[in-house]
Design a binder for these strands. Structure first.
Lengths: 172, 172
DNA sequence: CGCCACTAGTAGACAAGTCCACTAGTCTGG
DNA sequence: CCAGACTAGTGGACTTGTCTACTAGTGGCG
């Protein structure tokens, strides 16, 4: 999966492994996070498969940069992925799991669990709304779609906050 | 992680690996799915660590059943997990990733992607609402919490459907 | 009787991801 | 001038999870 996501990023513009990592930590963080080592491994796998090509560029203020470009084969594979059957992925939510099994916990511990979740949700919301505000007016469909995924995140977080309020109310 | 979830299930009632799998496919499916082989491996790891104990029971209409109970040590570990720091888990949403990179796709393909997502969301919603309806009135906090996680799922799916409507409208 | 479905569990190869430590160059602030 | 931050990348051990295929017992249906 990571391979596909990286192909997608390379399709937007050529970049180094470091930059891929930065994207995973910033622009696409709310729907895709990845380990640094894994990114570099995947990149060399992509070049090995001929889906990406490397060009060593002199580093401006730093070590040399290995800039990865997507190849035509890569673009094909990316396209195949984008148009392939969308099968539902396995759900796995640690927070919900904990909550589900937290029936026997004393009340303050439970309240803290919910409070922690609220805090991370709130800071995520602020961050996403900042991204939304600072995003340029969508020029093309590409940009509109990217904003749409952002809106998805915002809507989900808002729903979660409302739900948290409900649960907190109900448990007192 | 799976180990903790299984401990949680065993804490609700002793069960076989097969039954753990069934839970992952039904009751807790909307927040935790797991591979059969992994479940059995994890179970034997749990007994190896003394967090669970096995008792072989004669199978009623089938092979012998290896019923796993949670031990006191297991209950401790479960409790430690439930009260430990809740750190945000890595987000990974294949659908959003695809949508994010689908800017260059022809319109019908894009529409199909959204339609597929809508279909799975709708059927999930039906399923969750069925679960909700057939759930007994919550007797204790345990049951209320379990219903709350279900409500979380329902709220998220509804939000997603609304969002889908927005996106579909915007893209025509 | 033979086949299928369901219950219950085992085994092994493999893929993907995480964690940690490490090299190395540059730039900035105290 | 030196420490720390930032850029850029490598290497290896380890964990977790997936996929596939297998054994085995029972019950029901045609």
């Amino acid at each position: 999966m990571l391979a596909r996501v990286i192909l997608g990023l390379l399709d937007l513009s050529p970049m180094t492994g470091y930059e891929v990592k930065r994207h995973c930590d910033t622009t696409i963080r709310y729907f895709w996070q990845a380990d640094k080592a894994q990114i570099y491994r995947t990149l060399s796998q992509l070049t090995g498969d001929g889906l990406a090509a490397v060009e060593t560029a002199p580093g401006v203020g730093g070590p040399a940069r290995q800039v990865h470009h997507i190849t035509d084969r890569g673009r094909e594979v990316l396209n195949d992925w984008l148009t392939s059957r969308l099968d539902p992925q396995p759900e796995r939510d640690v927070f919900l799991a904990r909550l589900f099994f937290s029936g026997g916990l004393p009340e303050p511990e439970l309240a803290e669990l919910l409070a922690t979740r609220r805090k991370t949700a709130e800071s995520l919301l602020v961050e996403l709304e900042d991204m939304r505000r600072s995003a340029p007016d969508p020029a093309d469909r590409r940009a509109r779609l990217r904003l749409a995924t952002l809106d998805h995140g915002i809507a989900q977080v808002r729903t979660e906050l409302d739900w948290l309020t409900e649960v907190e109310k109900e448990l007192t």
